[in-house]
Computed example of a mutant assay.
Amino acid sequence: MSIRDWPVGERPREKLLERGAAALSDAELLALFLGSGRRGQSAVDLGRELLQRYGSLRTLLELDIAQLLEASGLGPAKACKLLAALELARRYLGEELKRDIALTHPGACADYLKARLGGYSYEVFACVFLDQRQRVIACEELFRGTIDGASVHPREVVRRCLALNAAAVIFAHNHPSGVAEPSQADRDITRHLRDALALIDVRVLDHFIVGRGVPTSLAQRGWI
């Protein structure tokens, strides 16, 4: 049965208009982005199937374009819609971060960094640059690949701090394995960067490790 044949109050679009987006299930929200299902299957049924196959909404939305295209029922158009929806969420969180003072609202910073880095299948090292009042100047992805002492170059971080006239920074990088426990290499990198930036009077406020769940803060561990 097509969604158009459902009672009006059960159709995702009409339900959203009447009761708000929070009233919709994950499958119904997915159906609005997917737009249509496939032969013999409504968009809501397709949404339910995808959630069941991948176990959760987060796992589904963390797939890259190649993985989405491999999913039965998702062609290029539907895959692009899902990726566009996720990018809109990232940009929304980015604007929220820029309006907040990162040190006063560490949760907003952690949420944004998780949204930005959590979906990568490879490691990415990012830096949030802050001014004297700890307001966000910019957030940039500086390095990609295996994050270790050989791939993270303090001179590049120093150069960007000087170019942006930053007074403080917050680092973040992801663990594609999903395990957000900091390694000894993570602690060593943080120490090397902190020492290098101290020479130009730039403070390192935190380093978040992004995996599954809440990002791990090295500052909260007492390692900054």
Results as ranks from 00 to 15, higher is better:
30 L>W: 01
88 L>P: 01
197 L>C: 11
47 G>L: 06
90 R>S: 05
6 W>G: 04
137 I>Y: 00
161 C>G: 06
181 E>H: 09
39 R>P: 04
83 L>T: 08
26 D>P: 07
29 L>F: 03
182 P>N: 09
204 V>G: 00
134 Q>R: 13
41 Q>Y: 08
222 G>F: 12
156 E>G: 00
53 R>G: 02
108 A>P: 01
62 E>Q: 12
159 R>A: 15
130 L>P: 06
93 L>I: 03
58 R>H: 11
107 G>Q: 12
123 E>N: 09
151 S>D: 01
18 E>C: 07
65 I>F: 13
81 K>N: 13
109 C>F: 07
73 G>P: 11
13 R>V: 12
222 G>M: 03
122 Y>I: 14
92 Y>E: 09
83 L>M: 13
102 A>T: 14
210 V>E: 02
51 L>T: 08
48 R>W: 06
6 W>F: 15
29 L>R: 14
55 G>F: 10
68 L>A: 02
182 P>M: 08
68 L>W: 11
100 D>C: 11
103 L>E: 13
45 D>C: 04
94 G>R: 14
137 I>R: 01
129 F>N: 02
140 E>C: 07
177 S>G: 07
49 E>A: 15
37 G>M: 02
46 L>F: 03
125 F>I: 09
183 S>N: 09
81 K>D: 06
41 Q>T: 12
180 A>K: 08
87 E>Q: 12
60 L>H: 04
155 R>H: 09
141 E>N: 15
177 S>F: 01
129 F>W: 00
200 I>M: 06
69 L>A: 05
179 V>P: 01
136 V>A: 04
179 V>D: 15
129 F>C: 08
149 G>F: 08
34 L>M: 13
8 V>P: 02
162 L>D: 05
220 Q>D: 14
76 P>K: 09
191 R>H: 08
10 E>Q: 14
145 G>E: 06
216 T>V: 15
68 L>Y: 07
141 E>G: 10
72 S>C: 05
87 E>V: 07
106 P>I: 10
6 W>L: 08
119 G>N: 05
1 M>F: 11
112 Y>L: 02
44 V>H: 00
122 Y>D: 12
214 V>C: 04
167 A>K: 09
3 I>T: 15
136 V>F: 00
223 W>S: 00
1 M>C: 09
216 T>L: 03
4 R>L: 02
119 G>C: 06
30 L>I: 13
137 I>Q: 00
53 R>D: 07
47 G>Q: 05
36 S>K: 14
218 L>G: 03
69 L>R: 14
139 C>L: 10
114 K>H: 15
162 L>N: 07
58 R>P: 02
54 Y>C: 05
221 R>Q: 13
145 G>Q: 10
151 S>F: 05
143 F>P: 00
144 R>G: 15
143 F>Q: 05
